[in-house]
Write a protein that binds this DNA or RNA. Structure first.
Lengths: 221, 221
DNA sequence: CGATCCGTTCAGGCTGAGTTAAGCTCAGCC
DNA sequence: GGCTGAGCTTAACTCAGCCTGAACGGATCG
């Protein structure tokens, strides 16, 4: 899962990013509105966290620009102001959620997970695919009920796949979602990760579609 | 837009309902957990507002029951408690948003709108042609409902054809669309691809127009 | 400082998608 | 009817794309 964090306060941004990475998120940080707008418009993210008070380009303008270009990207707005009129403005600009500072990082994480789950079209907190289940709020995978031990990258890949199970996930897009910054295409590390995943959850579950990407299915049947 | 409001405090429920109706929402009120659960399970709502402290059946239980029966209904939880651990529990049960009392009705309305907007984005626009269907967002072809297994080139050809079904697709133009760069006309590889496609979806569906190109039709003679 | 774990790189091997080529079919035309 | 050429089909070939085992190096932790 890849998050775009647009926040000019470097200290706060670092703290949030560290907390998110501890939860296996991939995080890109933009320090001002322009950079944030550009990244959100060109890269593939699952969700964006957007501060309202930004240099160069204010948060609402960034959000409006994304919506104007038809980005479906879910956006959580972050702000120091607690006034309800501000919130209304945020939602009017197309925000999906709103959090006021100060806040618990745990709550931010929960809200982000809920946003991603919902925007992937899943209502229930648990997504199942054959013997494999994913509990969205906690981020835990289980195989036949037993919790799986996955590394950060394995987790990101599997999470991306299960959110779009039964659909082919494009190779390039998958790499974009799994790796922070720009993904180099001249590497087979993703294949190695997939191979290791297959050894853990069974070879049949991750199907490879030549020339396009991977697909998570219930295995057989 | 229809809202299910599960709230035992009649005064508060009335206030919320009035505010929502002022915004042209249709509101059903349930005064206890059992009624709320039943309504949410049998009626069609766009979104539900769920109080946590309810008589007869507590809020989290209601939510879990909905999720268990596969309801895709987006749910906003309403509670008097402000602890972040409570919020985490709410999200774990499958909530999509969380609001603590007291709150501005304007914020509730905004959050409900955001929830509905996001959960509405999952209607699948499908192109159909006889027994063949194409789901544009996922890019999946299906024949009589069964997903088709296509190679990259087969997929490109079929996609080009179904986007202009019932119209003759010029050979040269088809090759230009399917092959990167400039297509050499001195090859019959396209014909091979078409032949393989025909074997998969039935010979009648792709009609040959001599001297011009191909045409995708419903297939009946 | 050593141990462990994780992500990456590299090399070797395999599979199958896409192409080529050759022979066949059939529509259109005289 | 017979000729002609566009299009169809099958089989074989080739190489890009993918898999995987092993080894390397960086990070983290005691």
């Amino acid at each position: 899962m890849k998050v775009l964090l647009v926040e000019d306060d470097a200290l706060l941004a670092g703290e949030i990013a560290a907390a998110l990475r501890r939860e296996n998120f991939a995080v890109d940080i933009a320090a001002d509105g322009e950079e944030g707008h550009h990244l959100g418009d060109t890269e593939a993210y699952d969700v964006a966290v957007l501060d309202l008070g930004l240099p160069k380009m204010p948060g609402p303008a960034v959000l409006r620009a994304w919506r104007k270009s038809g980005r479906p990207l879910p956006v959580l707005i972050l702000t120091a102001r607690d006034g309800w009129t501000e919130k209304v403005d945020g939602f009017k600009a197309g925000a999906d959620d709103y959090l006021t500072k100060p806040f618990r990082v745990e709550e931010l994480i929960m809200r982000l997970r809920a946003l991603v789950r919902r925007s992937a079209g899943h209502a229930a907190p648990e997504i199942a695919c054959g013997p494999l289940t994913f509990d969205a709020p906690t981020g835990v995978f289980a195989l036949d009920g037993l919790p799986l031990k996955l590394t950060a990258l394995e987790w990101r890949v599997l999470q991306a796949l299960i959110l779009r199970k039964d659909v082919v996930f494009d190779r390039i897009e998958l790499m974009d979602r799994v790796y922070e910054g720009d993904a180099g295409t001249d590497s087979n590390s993703l294949e190695v990760i997939v191979a290791r995943l297959r050894r853990k959850i069974g070879h049949a579950m991750i199907e490879t579609v030549r020339g396009r990407g991977y697909r998570l299915t219930a295995g057989l049947a």
